[in-house]
Design a protein around this nucleic acid. Sequence first.
DNA 1: TCTGGGGTCCTAGGACCC
DNA 2: TCTGGGGTCCTAGGACCC
Length: 443
Amino acid sequence: MYALVDCNNFYVSCERVFAPNLEGKPVVVLSNNDGCLIARSQEAKDLGLKMGEPYHLVRPLLEQHQVRVFSSNYALYGDMSRRVMQVLSRFTAGVEVYSIDEAFLDFSGMSLLAPDLLAYGQRVQRTVARDTGIPTCVGMAPTKTLAKLANRLARKLGTEGVLAFHTEAQWKNALAHVPVDTIWGVGRRYGRKLNELGIGTGADLAAMPEHWLRRHMGGVVGQRLWRELHGQPCLEWNPAQWDEKEHSAPSTAGRHSVTCTRSFGRPQYDAVVLNEAVATFAAKAAEKLRRHGLAAHLVTVILGTDRYAALAGPKTYHAVISLPTGSNDTGTLTQAALRGLQQLRREGMAYHRAGVLLSGVEPVGQVQLGLFSGSAADQQRSQQLMKTVDKLNARFGRQFVHLAATGTHKELDGQHKAPVWAGRSAHRSPLYTTGWGELWQLH
DNA sequence: TCTGGGGTCCTAGGACCC
DNA sequence: TCTGGGGTCCTAGGACCC
């Protein structure tokens, strides 16, 4: 038996914990750069506001209904997520942190306690609410896919947000009442294709032969989906080794890449500005790499033009730099990234986004030494230096120690000054739980 | 003026090895 | 007319998730 615990309107709920007067009022949270809507309270959904809608298009509507708007505050959401996961881990040893706002719990052995299962789910829900202030829904079923479905229905039906499927009859009945594209693993593409074939509900899909899904829905992926819908668990169980100290859950073990990309507040042409931005992204990505105990030997620089322009031509440009040996040293990776940028940048071209992707990763302990590059002693020195830098930054604030390449003009008169390429973030809430200068205060 | 960011897995095909 | 069998590694592209 699996339970899926999913936080309701998570980012909005995080904001409400520290602004309880927003309870019952319409609230939205914007993406980076105040670009689009990425979280809505129920009241905002009821106004017809859609996920992913561009902010500038719905702004009049937001103002008309006095919707409270927040820029995203990932430091806050990451920290609140960590707290939620911590509470969940008190209920079972098996917790798989699936995303920032949801986790699977291993309830195996509990199927025998059928009548108690609902009560246990409600206890999880109550405890999370009591200890973190975050409302959740809980769905329980023999497979992850069915638990997802139970969770989805739990928030729709009048079940107070907790629902369990014990018997095949129960989930069959549920499948018959949901559109096929609400099934976990059926996206927009397959949804449309299935509808064209007359497969409208989850039950219609489950009624197809297993080999049909294998043939038409991505091979073994489709086959697994079929089995999951029939109560046979097929998806892997990855009890997360999530790091309590890390502010951004989840941290999946065995990841293959680390990325840092950002849209600029306005288009950038200048080589110096782009250099500083890319150096900053490289440093952030390198730090993330170290947090996961990884090293990378491929550095990809990404430059993006206006992706909504009608003009022909590619919207993004990539340059890949291959390192002779895996590294997580900020200096090495930044140097490579800047070399990539130099290859890519064209004079006079307007860039709207940039980023750094680190891939070809391996655990630090297993890094191959290059034949002609860096000795083991050099590597040790680099590791030691990075450890010290990370420690200082953890203690005194991000970017306390940084490469000059990321820009030397950021601190003026002790005031933090945003770089010229920074995206908009006009409505960010304080770092209530992660910054000494911005602690929550009672008014 | 204005439209996010960060991931995963799978398949097919090419190049290469013995 | 006709040309084996068994692999690996890498990349691109397509689907999905939050």
